[in-house]
Amino acid sequence: MPRSIWKGAISFGLISIPIKVYGATEQKDISFRQVHPADGGRIKYKRVCEVCSQEIPFAEIAKGYETPDGRMAILEKQDFEDLPLRSTKAVDVVQFVDADEVDPTYISSTYFLEADGPGAKPYVLLRDALVQSGRVAIVKVALRSRETLAMIRAKDDLLLMHTILWPDELRDGQFAAPAEDVSVSDAEITMAGSFIDALSGPFEPEQFHDAYREALETLVEAKLSGSAMVAQEEDTGASADVVDLVAALRASVEAAKKRRAEASGEQAAPAAPAEPAEEEDEAPARKTPTRTTAKKTTAKKTAAKKTTAAKTTTARKTPAKKAS
């Protein structure tokens, strides 16, 4: 069981809910040591004061804030604990909002909330009330010596708390938006919708895995055992220079249906062709005159010539009758 990182209470009106806070996520990435490649020795760093050149133990290091004019304000652990904030030991509910009103972009970290001591009943009361109302609680809390906004929501039998970034911590992303003169056709949107339909389904996180981490683990095992790493086929993927979006999307739909069919053992149905774009009416093209009559006349003349030549040859070969 993990250790709690914070202990306090949820202030729910006049009701106080004692809780313990646990980290809900953990990093599964492979960590590496910095080493000397010649002998494998680990590279170590020393915390040295630039003024007195002495190595300072981590427990004796304080936090300092340097002002633009070069002055230094030194803050110690007790200074943070004595901050006049209500949220240092309490999760203060400030508002209830609809669950879909919170933009996921603002969510930073996730925590489990556990009822502590006599807090089980008010814990269940808040949890069930949130479920029936379809809302989440917006709260203020101080975690790791820093006050932050957070959202408390019910999930199954638990209360989860998601810390939320402050509005000024979210960058303006308008610089990344495409140019206003870029447009797509109805046929392209229709085919894109077909691709979305081909890959639609319930979200099941269990079916996804970290292929990069698995490849790193295999590489490490190969290094330790001294065996050669099996080369993987390179996936070139689709070309970035796409000219015909409809054709590319149609091929993507076919590939997606084929993958799903192979997984389920069924035969993939062909993708529906995109409707052609509407064109302006044009004048009917001039008909090219047929040459059938001319060809027939030429054939008749050729046949007549051949017949005449044949008669002439026959006449020459027939001997003349003697006069009696």
Rank of each mutant, 00 (worst) to 15 (best):
V48Y: 03
V51Q: 12
A261N: 04
P18Y: 01
W166V: 05
G237Y: 03
Y106R: 08
A176E: 08
A73E: 14
P122T: 09
D157E: 08
L75R: 13
A238V: 15
R291H: 15
L14E: 03
V230H: 15
D241Q: 07
Q95P: 08
G8S: 04
S133H: 04
T292F: 13
T312N: 05
A215V: 08
R213C: 11
K300I: 05
E147F: 03
G193H: 15
I56V: 13
S252V: 02
Y106G: 02
R213K: 15
F32D: 04
T314F: 02
R291K: 14
A90P: 02
A309E: 11
V21I: 02
W6H: 02
V124D: 01
Q174H: 12
K63F: 07
G41Y: 04
I10W: 01
A62L: 11
S183E: 06
K28C: 07
P2C: 11
D210V: 03
T105C: 14
A248C: 02
V242R: 06
S227P: 07
F80K: 00
V48C: 14
D128K: 07
K305E: 07
S11N: 06
F96K: 12
G226S: 06
D82G: 12
R316K: 06
I61Q: 08
V94S: 03
D181S: 08
K300C: 04
P84V: 05
M151A: 02
L130Y: 01
L158A: 01
F195C: 00
A310F: 12
A277I: 12
A228R: 10
Q132G: 13
S53F: 05
D197A: 09
V51W: 15
A129C: 08
V220N: 07
K317R: 13
M161Y: 00
T25C: 05
S109K: 10
E188N: 05
K287I: 06
R259S: 09
F80T: 01
K296Q: 13
T293R: 13
D235N: 08
A222G: 15
D116R: 01
F12M: 12
A238H: 11
P178M: 04
M1I: 07
S108M: 14
G173W: 12
V141E: 01
I17W: 00
T236Q: 07
L83E: 09
A228I: 09
T110G: 02
V182S: 04
G23P: 00
A120R: 05
C49L: 15
V124Q: 00
D69H: 14
I138S: 01
A129M: 07
K311F: 07
D235E: 08
T293K: 12
G70E: 12
A90M: 12
A283T: 11
K89S: 15
R127T: 00
D156H: 03
R127H: 02
A277P: 01
D103H: 14
F112T: 03
A99K: 08
V124E: 00
D69S: 14
K257W: 02
S264K: 10
A198C: 05
V94Y: 09
A222K: 04
I61S: 11
